[in-house]
Each structure stands twice: as structure tokens, then as C-alpha cells.
Design a binder for these strands. Structure first.
Lengths: 206, 206
DNA sequence: CCATAAATATGACCGCAGTCATAATTGGTC
DNA sequence: GACCAATTATGACTGCGGTCATATTTATGG
């Protein structure tokens, strides 16, 4: 009984997974990540505890579900920009800045999300990481072709440097008990620094 | 009985702490971080389990002990460089690169160390973080004064960007199952990118 | 409709990190 | 030495993340 590529099984499977994610995120937001137990999540999602671990290997792994959505979204938007004629750095940058605003909604939760994200790179078979990487490299290549970025540096390296600064700034912002600065603004400024470089120019701006 | 600022109590305290750290690191190296239990550490250090938690709030916290040593060491070396006349970026950079070689000894262990280090920033009362920060800012200020770095950017920001790239590269290297590149070399190249900037120059180098 | 195998669900169970009430040590005082 | 307060040590105990053997459901073939 293979009707239209999606069997009833797979549908139910996906449904359950979503129920678990929804329940988990709800509880995380309400009571905090640490205070939420897997039992509670399972209860709330109306499954047994063991079932949770059929879908996610670790408690934190529920965050992985989100990043899949996000990377798809990013690919979408970036593709749109790159498609319509001349791409330009500011536009691309703004797409990534947009994602930063997601983190502003719930900092405590976002911190756990970001740490899980960090940990995931461990697994070499994780394709979400690869997709982010590929996206970054692709963007840099385009900007290089457009003449907006130096062509004499490896695109992978340039992409990584930008990602590091993005991620580092985000982490610092997330880890402070109080927001230490306006997140998007700071990221923009730091990225600008990387683009411009730290070397003094001939005519130093004021 | 306050003889020479260090009571017997404090001496024993410090001794015990060191015994615990030594035992922990030994076991981590031999059997891996996760496979090592606090019971084993306590056993090996000849104390009760509860005693461990008198000295360290979490199992990972033993790494904190090391970072204190390191930052002191870094302050020392950097001060020496900055003291003797003209400081220059390459020399400063090499000091930080030296630290990278510590990580090359045991990657699995270093990964846990780095993650604990990341988590520590959470606590606002952690002065190790503040000291690293202060050190970075101080260095940048000096280099700015020396004319080696742009003077029109906030030293804190510049320092952070450099730290982010350093840290990001390190994490990527630590998280890969196999070393993906020569660590020190890659850090040097990426830092160079930040210094030079990603903007195309008039005469593009080949 | 029954048989069978694969996929999925379940909750009793286990090991360990971390807590806490209590006990032992220590240093100071008379 | 006897007493006291403060500091440090201890291990029984708890709670939760994660496992696993077993049960249940689902799809398929005869």
C-alpha cells in the first residue's frame, strides 16, 4: 500500500515527531530547559518515555529539528537573492541578520539550541551542517565572482571566518545574563570589520 | 595560627584539589571523559565522592583549573613581549598560536575542555574570562598605538573578532573526527584574513 | 482472514551526576 | 587538655537521562 509516496506509517511518524517537538519547546519555554524532564515531554506529547528516544537520541536533539527548517529557509532566501541579477553583500548579510532576531525571542532557550548546534558538528554524517557550510561557500563564491570580495582567498576559509564571527558574537550575546549589546547591530559591525580588515589604510578614517 | 599567610588548612585544601585534578585528567586521558565517573576520580584521588563536589560544582569543572594556569601564563608572556620595545603583531600572534599546540595533544579531551570553557562565560563572576578579555583588549590597544592596527575601531570589538576566529577555528578542528587541517597553520591564515580584510584591493595579489 | 515479518511503542530498569544531613577535623580560646 | 565554632569530609540517597527486552501495531502475501 504505497499511495502517493507517503504511507500512513510515515505520516503518523511525522505527526508524532512534531507533537514531541511542540511539547518539548513549550515546556522548555515555560519551565526552562533543565527543569523539563523527558518524562514530562513524553507525557505532554502523549507517548511513552521510550518513544521519545526513538525519535531523538538525546534530550537536546529536539533542537536539531528546528535547524533543518532554518537551513532550508536560508537556502531559499539566499537563492532568491543570488538569482535576481547582481547579488550584493549587504543583502546577503541582512538575510543572515534576520535569523539573529529569532534568537532574541528566548535567550535561555536559544543558548541551549546554539550549544546543541555546536555539538552536532561532531557527527560527520550530519547534513544540516554541511548545508550551512555549502551555503556559505556558495555565497562567497558568488560575491567573489561579482568582485565584491577578494578572489585570492579560498572561499571556504572566507566563509568560515565570517561564520565564526557570526557565531562567536551570537554566543557571547546569549551567554551574558543580560543582553550586553543590540545583537544584530553588533554582528553587522563585526562582520564589517572582517570585510574591511584591521590593517590601517593610507588615509585613516578620522 | 596564621603563619606566613598560608595555614595548614589552605595547604591541604590546595593539595587535595590538585590530587583531584591530576586523578581526573589521568582518567579522562586513559578512558575518555564520558567513560570516567566521578566515583572513579574520587577513588583515584583518595577522597569520597562528595568531596569532589566540594571542590568542583560539576564534573567538567575540573577543566577550569587549567584555564587559570593558562591565562596567567599568557599574561606573563604577552607582558614580556609588550615590555621589550616595539611589540609587533606576529610575535603576539605566535604566543596565542603556541597555546594551540596544547590542544593537539589530546583532541577528545580538549574538546570537552573547550566546551566547558564556552559554558563558563555564563557566570558573570568568572574572572578567568575577564582576564582573557582584558588581555586581548590590552594587546589590541598596544598594537593600535604602535600603528599596526586601525585606530578607528573599538579595541574590544577588534579583540573579540580575533578571538572568535581563533575559537571558531579551534572548535572546528576539535570537533572533526579526524584533524581536518593543520591547526596552527589554519588559525594563522584565518587571522591573517581578518587583519587584511576581505575587500578587494586596487592591485589584487594574483 | 490468517500468517509472518518489519517497524514502532512501551515502561521497567540501570548507572551516574549531583545533593544533603551528618560526622569528623581543624584552629582558636581559656 | 577541654571546649567551641567553623570548616571540610563523607556516603547514603535521589532524580533523571538513556537503554533494552518485550509487546503492540502495521503492511504484505498467500
Amino acid at each position: 500500500m504505497t499511495e502517493l509516496e507517503v504511507s500512513r506509517r510515515e505520516r503518523k511518524k511525522e505527526e508524532t515527531k512534531e507533537r514531541i517537538v511542540k511539547a518539548a519547546l513549550r515546556l522548555f519555554k515555560d519551565h526552562g530547559f533543565d527543569a523539563t524532564t523527558v518524562d514530562q515531554i513524553a507525557e505532554q506529547a502523549d507517548v511513552a518515555k521510550g518513544t521519545f528516544f526513538n525519535y531523538f537520541p538525546r534530550k537536546e536533539a529536539v533542537f536539531g529539528y528546528l535547524s533543518e527548517t532554518w537551513v532550508a529557509d536560508a537556502e531559499q532566501k539566499i537563492a532568491a537573492i543570488l538569482a535576481k541579477g547582481l547579488p550584493s553583500w549587504p543583502k546577503v548579510r541582512d538575510v543572515f541578520l534576520e535569523f539573529a532576531s529569532i534568537y532574541e525571542e528566548d535567550r535561555e532557550l536559544s543558548l541551549h539550541m546554539a550549544m546543541e548546534w555546536t555539538r552536532r558538528m561532531h557527527a560527520p554524517d550530519d547534513d544540516v551542517c554541511r548545508r550551512w557550510d555549502a551555503l556559505g561557500v556558495h555565497v562567497v563564491r558568488q560575491l567573489q565572482a561579482q568582485g565584491e570580495l577578494r578572489r585570492d582567498v579560498a572561499a571556504e576559509r572566507a566563509s568560515q571566518v565570517l561564520a565564526d564571527v557570526y557565531h562567536g558574537t551570537l554566543m557571547m550575546w546569549l551567554e551574558s545574563p543580560e543582553p550586553p549589546f543590540p545583537l544584530k547591530d553588533e554582528i553587522r559591525k563585526r562582520l564589517a570589520l572582517v570585510i574591511e580588515g584591521l590593517t590601517p589604510r593610507a588615509k585613516e578614517g578620522r
